[in-house]
Nucleic acid binder design. Structure first.
Lengths: 161, 161
DNA sequence: GCTAATCTTGACAAAAAAGTCAGGTATGTC
DNA sequence: GACATACCTGACTTTTTTGTCAAGATTAGC
C-alpha cells in the first residue's frame, strides 16, 4: 500500500500552484524547478492534471499553469483519483496469478477488505483540501490532527466475528 | 495508492492457512493451486511470511505450512507491514525527482498527509484479524461495516474526546 | 543409507512503472 | 509574418516490481 510517484508529484505540483495569488501563473519550467523534477516529467504530470480539469493551461509565450478552481475547493481525494486511475477497479483483474481470472472472483473476503480500506482512505482524503496544505509541516500536521475523519475513535473495536 | 501483488497474494495464502484445523498443514503446491499461483511465486511469498514469523514451515516429506499463531491473533496491519517493507519510511527517499534528495526534506506539508493517511490505513487494518476474513464475502463485508475504525463518524463537528 | 517429497534461495526473465527525448502546436511580441 | 516562448504528445529508455527457473537442503519412509 504505497503512494506512487505520479500521486506524489501531482500533489506537489498542485501545491505550487495553490500558493499563487489571483491571476498568477507558473510555467512548466518553473514548476519543474521548484519541485526538483525534470521538465519532461513534470510536463507529463501537468498534462494529466490538465486533462482532468484540475489545472488550466495557457499556451504560447506568457503561458503557464494555474489552478482551475480555488485551492479551497479541491479535495485531495479528487486529486488522487485522477492520478491513480482505477486502483480499486483494476485490483482483482491484476492479481490473477497464472490464471485468466482470480480464483476468488465470485466470492472473496479479501476484496471486501481492499474495498473498505480504499473507502477509508478516500474518506480521509476527502476531508482535506489543497488549501489546507499550505503552510509549514508543523501547521499542516496540527490541522490534520483536528480533522474528525483522521482521528481514532474511542477504542471500541468489535472483536466478534 | 494501491495494494501490491505481494500484499494481495500474501493475504490470500495466509487466509488459506487460516481455515485449516488444528494440526493441519498445506504444502506449497496446495497453497499455490488453491490460489491459482505458480508454485515458484507462491513459494517466494511463503518464504517472506515464514521469515517474518507469521507462518511456520516444516521441511521434508510430510512438510508444509501452517500459521505460527491462531488466526484470531494475527492482525492485518501486521501482515501488510511484512509484505510492504517500508512504504512510509522510503517514501521521501524515492520521489526526489532529478535531485539527490527531495526538495522539501526540511519542511513538507505533503509528508504530513502521507504519514497521516498511512496511519489511517494502519489503524483500519489493525482492527481486523485474519480470522475475521473467514467466510463469505457478504459476511465479511457485514462484519467490516460493524467495526468502528472503518466507519465514518457521525457528522458532529467540534466534539472532542 | 537411499529415495521421494518438500521447503529454501539466489540468479535470471518478463512486465509494468517511471522518466527522458524530440518533434509538434499554439500564441504573444516585434 | 517571423521568431521566441511555452504547452502537447507519442516514442523510447531506464528502473522497479513481478514472476520463473533451477539447483540446494531437509526430512519421512523404506
Amino acid at each position: 500500500m504505497k503512494v506512487s510517484a505520479r500521486e506524489e508529484y501531482g500533489l506537489r505540483c498542485l501545491l505550487q500552484l495553490a500558493v499563487l495569488g489571483e491571476g498568477e501563473f507558473l510555467t512548466l519550467a518553473q514548476v519543474a524547478e521548484r519541485e526538483g523534477l525534470s521538465q519532461a516529467n513534470a510536463g507529463k504530470v501537468m498534462w494529466l492534471l490538465n486533462k482532468a480539469g484540475l489545472v488550466s493551461s495557457i499556451r504560447g509565450m506568457k503561458g503557464g499553469y494555474h489552478l482551475a478552481r480555488p485551492a479551497s475547493e479541491i479535495r485531495l481525494s479528487e486529486i488522487i483519483k485522477v492520478l491513480d486511475e482505477d486502483a480499486v477497479e483494476g485490483h482483482c483483474k491484476s492479481y490473477a496469478g497464472v490464471l485468466d481470472a482470480c480464483v476468488h472472483t465470485s466470492d472473496c473476503g479479501i476484496r471486501s477488505v481492499i474495498v473498505n480500506v480504499h473507502e477509508v482512505v478516500e474518506r480521509a482524503l476527502s476531508s482535506i483540501t489543497l488549501a489546507q496544505l499550505i503552510g509549514t509541516e508543523q501547521k499542516v500536521d496540527n490541522m490534520l490532527h483536528q480533522i474528525q475523519g483522521l482521528r481514532p475513535r474511542a477504542e471500541t473495536v468489535g472483536e466478534r466475528a
